[in-house]
Design a protein around this nucleic acid. Structure first.
Lengths: 107, 107
DNA sequence: CAAGATACCTTGCAAGACAAAGTACTTTGC
DNA sequence: GCAAAGTACTTTGTCTTGCAAGGTATCTTG
């Protein structure tokens, strides 16, 4: 069930991390794994969607420790989306907290 | 996109509200509508899933103001699930907040 | 050269939010 | 008495997206 909670927030996480600097896919999996379970089967399709929608760009960099890495960088559009999603997340999570803390006006 | 954020939390919302007293489906839609967009097409299938899984029971009550209402009440199992999901939500939302507030140990 | 770590990608499935459409009951206004 | 509006429940089909599983290719180390 936990997997359903991630819906929508994963994109926010990726965009937020990329706002702070370029990262490659495998690296993103490791970073995000620190706070929730995630696999490559989730990240790579997401990166493709983000690139197709213009939120991020990508470029290849050779590596001495393995195969070439595909780095992703955020675009101006991506920063805008990130801001919107961060605001959405804040207001959404606040709503849920209010509801489960019983601060709603119900009988 | 907003719709994706609701995943997983809607069930928690419904269970939490039912912990405070019995409600009928249409009423739940109205209550939850106070804090997020929701329609009957979402609630009724969810109520069916919750009943099938034993988290809630239901009973019909005649109404003077329209068709009969199907009231839902939470079971002991449902209360346990609600507690688990509330804990999951708290730790999950805290993780996201840490990440977007930059309190992660990354370069 | 085999094993393991690194790194990428794709396929297929499952969960669940929602629009839309349908049914049926009540009250209100003409 | 009947149309319209509000109340209340249900089902169908679509879309998004998380994830397991499997595949490819590179580099290092024994």
């Amino acid at each position: 069930m936990q997997s359903q909670l991630k819906r929508g927030t994963l994109e926010l996480c990726v965009l937020t991390i990329l706002c702070r600097g370029d990262r490659y896919g495998y690296e993103l999996v490791n970073i995000i794994s620190n706070c929730m379970h995630i696999t490559e089967g989730t990240i790579y399709p997401l990166m493709k969607r983000l690139k197709d929608s213009g939120s991020i760009d990508s470029y290849i960099v050779e590596s001495q420790e393995g195969p070439p890495r595909k780095y992703y960088s955020i675009t101006d559009d991506g920063r805008t989306i990130q801001q919107e999603q961060e605001n959405e997340w804040r207001s959404f999570s606040e709503s849920i907290n209010k509801l489960i803390n019983g601060e709603e006006g119900m009988s």
